[in-house]
Write a protein that binds this DNA or RNA. Structure first.
Lengths: 246, 246
DNA sequence: ATGGATGTGAGTACACCGTACACACGACTG
DNA sequence: CAGTCGTGTGTACGGTGTACTCACATCCAT
């Protein structure tokens, strides 16, 4: 055992964001948090989240696998980095009037981001820590919009969570369906339901799901994602307005 | 190459649920879909979803790994089986009056199930196919509740999806926070925020998130999950009632 | 009753994954 | 000019999902 250093640990910066902030000495400048994150996001966009492995990512960057671990303590932190990158560069606070406008803008931005980076939903469900700087900024803005309307901290957070919960769930639904269609090169939802059929048909044949069966036969807006998204969002916002008197 | 059978493939049952239905000849009866699913659910409940591997599961069942593949085409189908099992045995349609009662019951059942099997949310986000028989039954019941109130198929589905989207998102939030607390043996949310601190504190110190910072200091119901859940649910239901005139 | 068909579980093997560890290089600081 | 420390390299280990082949138990038709 070596001379046994007196201080067990000097003062490791510990958190990822703190480490990023100070620009590092830069002896060799091949890699950076930004370049790693960008490459990972690109890979996930193109081939899906499960295609992002430390090996493939390092190969894509022309670097050994273990080099990544200088910037990231493990794959979890890589995911955090990706998440924050996906939510970066979005309009800080669109010129929307009142809390309602702010929440609509928030919802629209969320959908745009999720459609561009479908793996986000998978990530936020798996990941333990999802509160990256850009995500916190988003929540902070929403929170501010409600407190500005006169709500106390608890109620404002409850309102924010109600809206964000809906957004998250609705997007998870939509993305899930879209990914299923994409995976099979289907353009139309009818294709989906047709080849989804082997399972769905059999289930429907059992006659146990009359309402669902009726829906599949008579519905017309089965693929109108945007309409359904806005419809649900309006319900939540209406409910908030009525219930909180704002 | 053997005599080259004329029919390339006789007629494989293909879908998991179809295969389950017919009980199979049963030459050896060590395993069954039910026993596999039950063991997997038990493992996931106890040690988390990531602890469920084909090897560990087979070991737990006293069987070789590959034996499982006689009942399941791959891990995806195992997950499907688990999902369906988790949603099984729930009261088919509680004696709740009207669509509103039905949706409240639906929401409560969903929360109970999610708290009992936290891995469900992780699963539905990752899984391509989440429409297992028991899940479809749930949707069918909800759909029926709305059509009974006079809604057409499209609107009824939009309403169902609005409610289910909120439920899904809200539970994902709650479960995520609870899992984070459980993972560290924290009992209180303050513990969470305290040790979450290294990251959170630093972010807050930047002063970039005034509203969020204010919330962390003045809020009192930070851990009242049930209250927030019901609050958001009521908002959605109020919005539906007002917007659809039901 | 008996012989073959049929499905079951065993065993082996492969490719891939995340990451721990020890080492070599090279630019900045003194 | 010399030393240091951050940076990237190489190797290795344990774990994963699953494809393939083979021995055997059970049931059905004879």
């Amino acid at each position: 055992m070596a001379p046994q250093h007196p201080n067990p640990e000097p003062a490791e910066p510990a958190t990822l964001w703190e480490r990023i902030e100070r620009p590092a000495k830069a002896p060799r400048t091949t890699l950076s948090h930004a370049s790693i994150a960008a490459a990972a996001v690109e890979m996930a966009d193109a081939e899906g989240l499960e295609a992002v492995s430390m090996r493939k990512l390092s190969g894509h960057l022309g670097v050994t696998t273990m080099a990544l671990y200088r910037y990231v303590t493990g794959k979890d932190e890589l995911f955090e980095l990706m998440l924050d990158t996906a939510f970066a560069g979005r309009p800080p606070a669109a010129p929307a009037p009142g809390w309602r406008g702010a929440m609509r803008a928030h919802a629209e931005r969320s959908r745009t981001t999720a459609l561009r980076h479908p793996w986000i939903l998978e990530l936020t469900a798996t990941q333990v820590v999802t509160l990256t700087p850009n995500v916190v900024a988003e929540i902070d803005a929403a929170l501010g919009a409600f407190t500005a309307a006169g709500l106390d901290a608890d109620t404002a957070m409850a309102a924010v969570q109600a809206v964000r919960a809906y957004i998250r769930g609705a997007l998870a639904d939509e993305i899930g369906q879209r990914e299923l269609m994409k995976r099979q090169n289907w353009s139309d939802g009818d294709d989906l339901r047709h080849a989804y059929g082997p399972r769905m048909n059999w289930l429907m044949e059992t006659g146990r799901y009359p309402a669902y069966r009726d829906y599949t036969k008579t519905a017309r807006r089965k693929d109108d994602f945007a309409w359904r998204y806005d419809f649900g969002l309006d319900c939540v916002l209406d409910g908030l307005a009525a219930r909180l008197g704002i």
